[in-house]
């Protein structure tokens, strides 16, 4: 962490001194996270391209104000997330459309029925040949916030505190949304399976 912070400091110093290759390094180090967030939150390919550029232009403009309170990548992740949030607000796309059952925090207990349903269906289904595509489709059905949280936790392997910093949500909320997102994803996969069975 200490070493990473020193590397970040060096890179920022070089960029502020006018070194374009240092900024290129920042881009190549962080573009994976930036692209993942944008792709999970925004569907339109043209808008995605514009947003990626907007994020890095903002990063360049605000680099001087970076206070090293977090990792550079986390800070860039926050800028990306907020840029996407503004985009969704402008387009009037809800980031999370929670239905009433979820709002009431209903967590059904595991029953034999749930077990058969989730285990047999999800597990066997996911091992089919086209499982990656099916999973992509199931993820696509999730609201933008759930998709982003799933990706940050499972793909980028970020900690709860890093996700909290990027999204600005309290840690407890991040955990709760993640539980709901995984549950919903499992349900989506099961629904897909049911359709195929018919």
């Amino acid at each position: 962490m200490e070493r990473k912070s020193t590397i970040d400091k060096d890179l920022i110093k070089k960029v502020l001194g006018g070194d374009s290759s240092a900024f290129e390094t920042i881009i190549s180090n962080t573009k994976g996270l930036v692209i993942q967030i944008i792709y999970k939150m925004v569907k339109n390919p043209e808008d995605r391209k514009d947003l990626v550029q907007e994020v890095y232009l903002k990063v360049y403009d605000k680099l001087e104000s970076f206070k090293f309170n977090a990792k550079l990548s986390t800070w860039i992740g926050t800028i990306t997330y907020n840029t996407c949030l503004n985009y969704l607000k402008k387009k009037k796309i809800p980031i999370l459309d929670i239905d009433q059952n979820e709002e009431k925090e209903v967590w059904e207990r595991i029953s034999i029925h749930t077990f058969c349903y989730s285990d047999n269906q999800t597990e066997s289904y996911i091992f089919k040949k086209e499982r990656s595509q099916i999973l992509t489709l199931a993820i696509e059905k999730l609201p933008p916030l759930y998709k982003t949280l799933i990706m940050l936790y499972h793909n980028e392997e970020l900690s709860y505190s890093e996700i909290k910093e990027i999204t600005g949500l309290p840690e407890g909320t991040v955990k709760n949304y993640l539980y709901r997102a995984r549950k919903k994803l499992k349900e989506n996969l099961s629904l897909h399976y049911k359709k195929e069975e018919l």
Binding site: I35, Q36, V52, Y56, R182
Partner: peptide, 26 residues
């Protein structure tokens, strides 16, 4: 089954841009 789901999520391919981002930004 949640672990299986997590493993599958991890192995999902990352999205790739069709253009050179660094060049475009610089």
């Amino acid at each position: 089954s949640y672990l299986v789901l997590s493993r599958e999520l991890k192995s999902q391919p990352e999205p790739v841009l069709e253009f050179d981002l660094s060049e475009l930004i610089l």
